[in-house]
Structure formats: C-alpha cells, structure tokens
C-alpha cells in the first residue's frame, strides 16, 4: 500500500469522552482505545441485568398465580437479620466510591484501604447469606418459593463473590502498574459492585418485603 496517512486523524484527538455523532471518528487502528473494554463491559452489565429481570419476572408471575406460596410451616422470611447485611452491602457502595475518589486524588494508600474495606464488607454479606441459608427451615426443592429463593440469592451471591474476586485482581494490579489495563479494570469493578447492590435492593424487596 502506498502511504495515504489519512489526513489529520480526528480519532486521535477524541479521547475517552468522545461521542459518536456523525462524522466523528472512533478509532485509528493501532492505537488501543481504553474505552472499548468499558463499552463492552457496560453492554455486558446491561445484558446481565436482564437475566435478573427474567428471574424477577418469573418470581412475580409464579407468586401471583400461586395458591400457597411458602413451604408448609413457613409463614414468611425473617427479615431483620438480612436487613443488617443489606445495610452492610449498600454501605459498601459508598466505600468503593470513596476508594475511587481517593484514587483520583492520587492517594494510593487510602484507595487501597477503602478498596479492601469494600471487599471485606462484601465478604461479610456473603457470610450472612450462608448463615441465613443454614438457618432456614426449607431446602432448595421444597416448593416453588424455595426454588426461587435459593436461585435468586444464590445467583446474586455468585455475583458478589465474582465482584470480590474482580476487586482483588484490580487491587493486586494496583501494586504492579506496568501490568496495564489498571484504570479500566478499576472502573469496571466499581460499576459491577454498584450493579450487584442495585440488584440486591430489588431482590430484597421481592423476597422479604413483598408478602
């Protein structure tokens, strides 16, 4: 190919905040764009939220059509203890925001502290979940409410666990900045954590509040 050099490449100047209106360039080939992964990740989260939406819709439909909802001998779920763990999980959205805030200010130590705190709070939530499961009078296969309860909390718990792992990986990377991809991984982990929190709020309302 002859050299065409493509004039002044406008994609170069676009930077991360670039929007995609007509006439605007998105990329110039070999210059890796930090945004691609984040775009993909946001799309992934949007898509993933629909799995939960499907489960929620299924929950609502089955509950509306049910004659007896809870397993025999169960009146409803104990909600006070779960509410405490809910508070822990929701506050962790604040701590991760603080961590990101400190990172933006360049205060790496505080960032790591709050990041680790967020991970710990997630772990506390998971532990609470396990305790609740062990204390329940019904098992996974005891009727359709039990099916849904374990499916929803279990699937959400998997996401919490995945979030903790994701944060762990980003934390480890923060010690080796040369590994690359640090910032976008961090943003992704943050987004994912907020996502997990929002899902939990809906889940809590469906499972514990809606009688």
């Amino acid at each position: 190919m002859t050299s065409t050099s493509a004039g002044a490449a406008p994609g170069e100047a676009g930077g991360p905040g670039q929007n995609l209106g007509p006439g605007e360039a998105s990329s110039t080939g070999h210059h890796a764009h930090p945004d691609h992964s984040l775009t993909g990740f946001v799309l992934f989260l949007a898509s993933e939220s629909l799995v939960f939406l499907a489960f929620f819709a299924g929950y609502a439909v089955l509950k509306n059509g049910a004659l007896s909802w809870y397993p025999a001998g169960v009146e409803g779920l104990e909600w006070r203890e779960p509410l405490r763990y809910t508070a822990v999980l929701l506050s962790s959205s604040g701590t991760i925001a603080l961590a990101e805030h400190f990172l933006a200010r360049g205060r790496l130590g505080l960032f790591r502290g709050f990041w680790l705190l967020t991970m710990a709070m997630g772990a506390v939530f998971l532990a609470g979940q396990v305790l609740e499961w062990r204390g329940l009078a019904f098992g996974f296969t005891d009727g359709v409410f039990a099916n849904l309860f374990y499916l929803l909390t279990g699937f959400h718990g998997l996401h919490v666990a995945a979030g903790i792992v994701l944060m762990g990986v980003t934390l480890a990377r923060s010690f080796t900045p040369s590994a690359g991809g640090g910032h976008k991984g961090l943003q992704a982990a943050g987004l994912f954590w907020h996502f997990v929190d929002v899902i939990w709020v809906v889940l809590f309302l469906l499972l514990y509040v809606w009688r």
Binding site: G7, L20, G23, A25, S26, S27, H33, D35, T39
Partner: peptide, 9 residues
Amino acid sequence: LRLRAPGMG
C-alpha cells in the same frame, strides 16, 4: 460503536 473509520458517522 467504537472502531469506525474517521468520517464514518
């Protein structure tokens, strides 16, 4: 969304 050539709105 992200990889269009310059000018390709």
